[in-house]
Computed example of a mutant assay.
Amino acid sequence: MLILPNSSDLGFYHWKTNQTRTNDSENYKVMATTDKGLQFQNRFDRKVITVDPCSEPGHNTTRKRIPSKMYTHFIVFDHIVRQRI
């Protein structure tokens, strides 16, 4: 089963029609930047997650590329929210 992007996802780009869409969610706000590309800000800890593969993903965030024969790129971002006690 393939995982396909949807226009209701946080970030969506349709390669054939060059359609771009970004959507905020309950947990993340999409940030538009000119030099760092697509970024998301977590609404709870306000940490920024950078999707650009040439830069660090951000504080409390790890990026893992998963080798796959089904996809050209398969990358998982894991952001840990640290709560105050």
Rank of each mutant, 00 (worst) to 15 (best):
I3F: 03
S68N: 05
V51Q: 05
I49Y: 02
N60T: 03
I66T: 11
D24M: 02
Q41I: 01
W15N: 12
I66F: 15
Q83P: 02
Y28R: 01
S55H: 15
V76L: 14
S7D: 08
T33D: 10
S55L: 07
N23D: 07
N60G: 08
M31A: 09
H79C: 00
R43T: 06
T50R: 01
N18E: 13
R65Y: 12
H14F: 03
H59E: 12
H14C: 10
G58T: 09
N27R: 10
G58S: 07
S68F: 13
F74M: 11
Q83R: 13
I66M: 15
N42E: 05
F40K: 04
I66N: 15
K16G: 10
S25P: 02
V81L: 10
K69D: 04
F74K: 15
K64P: 06
H14G: 03
K29F: 09
R46S: 14
K16C: 01
M1N: 11
K47N: 12
R82P: 04
Y71R: 06
H14Y: 10
Q39W: 00
T50G: 05
F74C: 13
F77L: 02
V48P: 04
H79F: 03
C54N: 14
E26S: 09
R21L: 04
L38W: 07
K69I: 12
T72P: 01
